[in-house]
């Protein structure tokens, strides 16, 4: 007892206590906090479709019409399938808020369960592409070499050689792909959102789509040459050559030319 009391006044004691408390809190949270629903959905039940319809009427019907047949503000959703819903709502693009040249990704407004319910409802309006399975979008099962060859021909012109994004006409753009989930990548290819063409399974087969996903998952990571400077090509390289290179060298020149004190 005395030994413990003797050590109790060590000046590092508060820090240790703090760390222990944090560990405890963190551990409790990890165990007890609710987890998000699993991505692999079971077949939608009738109640899913009903709940989905309610969500739809509340959030989507204004623009897409109460029966999803479309209005002047939004296209028809008949036949777009659960995949389109999972993509659009899952990336936060839908419900659309702002008018602009294109609808942009923003914070997601619904949780996974609600998204799958909305998807179930829209799928019930007319047959369309379904949400892909885990297996279909698993990057480790794809061939990134074949993926790159396909990406180069079909995707790089809009999204840039490594998926860093690019400009389209009139303020539209093809976004950066590095943070997009494999499922959303698959769905975007399949459903052709906004300006993006539709890459149906007869255009790019499911295996080919997976190869492309494997390729994209390797991008935006480690650049062998050092800092990737945004992977934007020669313009950013030229800009940095001026800023860093000429900047440092003119600085050196000023130092060399200056009189020493």
């Amino acid at each position: 007892m005395k030994a413990l009391a003797a050590r109790r006044h060590d000046r590092r004691a508060p820090i240790v206590l703090l760390l222990l408390a944090l560990l405890l809190t963190g551990g409790l949270y990890a165990v007890l906090a609710p987890t998000s629903a699993d991505a692999a959905a079971a077949a939608p039940s009738a109640s899913d479709i009903q709940t989905g319809e309610k969500l739809f009427q509340a959030n989507c019907a204004t623009c897409h019409g109460p029966s999803g047949a479309g209005t002047a503000s939004g296209p028809s959703l008949i036949g777009v399938g659960a995949a389109a819903v999972n993509f659009q709502v899952g990336t936060g693009r839908m419900p659309a808020q702002q008018n602009g040249p294109q609808i942009e990704a923003k914070p997601v407004q619904f949780d996974d369960e609600q998204i799958s319910q909305l998807g179930a409802f829209v799928a019930s309006l007319g047959a369309g592409p379904a949400v892909p399975t885990e297996d279909q979008v698993d990057p480790s099962k794809g061939n990134s070499a074949n993926g790159m060859a396909l990406f180069r021909t079909n995707c790089a012109m809009c999204h840039n050689a490594v998926g860093a994004g690019g400009a389209l006409s009139r303020g539209k753009f093809a976004p950066k792909l590095w943070e997009t989930s494999p499922t959303h990548l698959y769905e975007a290819m399949l459903t052709g959102p906004q300006s993006m063409p539709v890459f149906s399974d007869t255009n790019l087969s499911p295996d080919e789509k997976r190869d492309i996903i494997a390729f994209i998952s390797e991008q935006g990571d480690v650049a062998p040459g050092g800092l990737d400077l945004g992977s934007l090509g020669a313009v950013s390289e030229g800009l940095w050559a001026w800023i860093v290179g000429i900047g440092l060298l003119i600085g050196a020149a000023v130092w060399i030319g200056a009189k020493s004190s």
Partner: peptide, 27 residues
């Protein structure tokens, strides 16, 4: 040593069909 430049493995071998967004020459 620190800044990547002209990462040709990202562009791929020349073929008249593909093209990348951000197609510019050196500054």
């Amino acid at each position: 040593a620190t800044m990547s430049i002209n990462a040709v493995w990202n562009y791929g071998p020349y073929d008249p069909s593909p093209v990348s967004a951000g197609a510019q020459p050196d500054w």
